[in-house]
Design a protein around this nucleic acid. Structure first.
Lengths: 256, 256
DNA sequence: TGACAATTCCCGTTGAACGGGAAGCGGATT
DNA sequence: AATCCGCTTCCCGTTCAACGGGAATTGTCA
């Protein structure tokens, strides 16, 4: 039998594999291109080692090197990950429903899942005329500060809830709830209403509304959300989201 | 002692990095979940080695192990790749335009780039009511047999064109052009018209239409395409695609 | 119960990875 | 043109992590 509890958390373990991940992690959304020396410096590797490792990764296709010798994460990596990752089936199943929501509520429509006690955003459709939005695809946000996160947390296992509430709750705006008791009340409300509304929790000027995509058990496999201007009415978005969630549930039940 | 006869297939170039890629490659869209032994067999690794490597990859987050010990490609890999890959900026820039096309032409709207002499599809929006379509996100198709591919090839460097045309051209349907001369004529036509139409090249029942997203130089950074039923009129789709392509070009020129 | 496959553990061997150092290569500054 | 500086490549002796055979363990199916 497999116990998920014993996920070995080795703090200083460095194998070749770990180093590869560390190198890949030096590439961030804002810094997608750099030199091998830069990578080495950031990953804490001696120069000659960094160059060797980087050149290995390039020849394996995990990094790309452009004409000027600049590095970026390789497309092959994206291919491998996108072809096969389990969670992306959810994304596939949700896309048509998200497009419909986005066509009716021309703001930001998002799909998130619970990943390591954070909300991980799998997809986002944005109207060009809608306001800015810090959510990024493949980006993460804290559970207590987003409508998606609240939905995911409300229907998550109680040990996840306890773990999240035990940690300090980061304040992103003046409206972000940072008191565990407040969040607990909010979660109960989400469970009874079936959706979450987060006015100004991440950005003062916007309100997030989210609904769960439920599975057969008690949990939520994902959260669908819309980000609106702070004072906009939420009724239409909620209606569309609920319908979309049911569509996604049906689509997920459809395939094995 | 070492008996080479025992080892069925031992690829020569093997560093740790190469092996990791080989292991990841054993996961395909149709086979996203398997056991460590299965992976080892497919990657040509001894059982004990396979188990160790797999367990390393799991603890690094590149593979995920579910409750039953089944393996799949890890979400962390997707995160790393999606946050940073250079080519995905194109996808980001193209999404709003693709959504608009999809809203008007309710079929399949796709985005592809030229990657290692094949068309690599970065994104696909599909209407639930539209027919099936073999194109998959992160999937590849031959350049000569798809409208996207023809567009990409028509505006590619001539050495790419020669390389592709020198190889045998795979026949996917009875309509697929497999004669280099025919394809050459087709490419010239694409260049003069500014778009490609591929009736029944990949599937008998459908027609692909594609336009290039041009860059400052002579090439095409990407191709936008729509897949329609074989006999459907293509005028609307082409009009929308051309408009969308101009939008994407503007968006790409907008950011650095 | 026995056969088979997946997995885990052990352990001696070895060669691949390591990283210091030096040298080559531009580009910028003086 | 001389010098500095940072990125990169090559060389090479050292070492330890990866390797993989083998045996033991567990789970599964017939």
């Amino acid at each position: 039998m497999w116990h998920p509890a014993d996920v070995a958390n080795s703090p200083s373990g460095d194998s070749v594999t770990d180093r590869i991940v560390r190198v890949l992690e030096t590439f961030t959304p804002t810094r997608t291109v750099q030199t091998a020396s830069e990578v080495g410096r950031r990953a804490g590797l001696p120069s000659s080692t960094a160059h060797r490792v980087v050149s290995d990764l390039v020849s394996a296709g995990l990094l790309d090197r452009d004409g000027e010798g600049r590095l970026s994460v390789g497309l092959r990596l994206w291919e491998l990950a996108t072809r096969s990752s389990h969670a992306l089936r959810v994304r596939q199943a949700a896309m048509p429903a998200m497009e419909r929501v986005q066509a009716r509520v021309r703001e930001h429509t998002q799909l998130a899942i619970l990943e390591q006690d954070e909300a991980l955003f799998l997809e986002r459709l944005s109207d060009p005329d809608a306001g800015a939005n810090i959510t990024r695809i493949a980006g993460r946000l804290p559970l207590h500060a987003t409508s998606s996160g609240l939905v995911l947390l409300a229907f998550a296992d109680s040990d996840v809830q306890e773990r999240v509430l035990a940690r300090p709750l980061r304040r992103l705006t003046s409206a972000t709830p940072t008191d565990p008791a407040t969040v607990r009340r909010k979660l109960a409300e989400v469970r009874s209403l079936g959706h979450a509304i987060a006015p100004g929790y991440i950005e003062e000027v916007s309100t997030g509304v989210a609904v769960p995509v439920r599975d057969r058990i008690s949990g939520a496999t994902a959260a669908l959300s819309v980000v609106l201007p702070r004072e906009a009415p939420t009724a239409l978005a909620l209606e569309e989201l609920h319908r979309a969630a049911r569509e996604v549930e049906a689509a997920l039940a459809g395939d094995s």
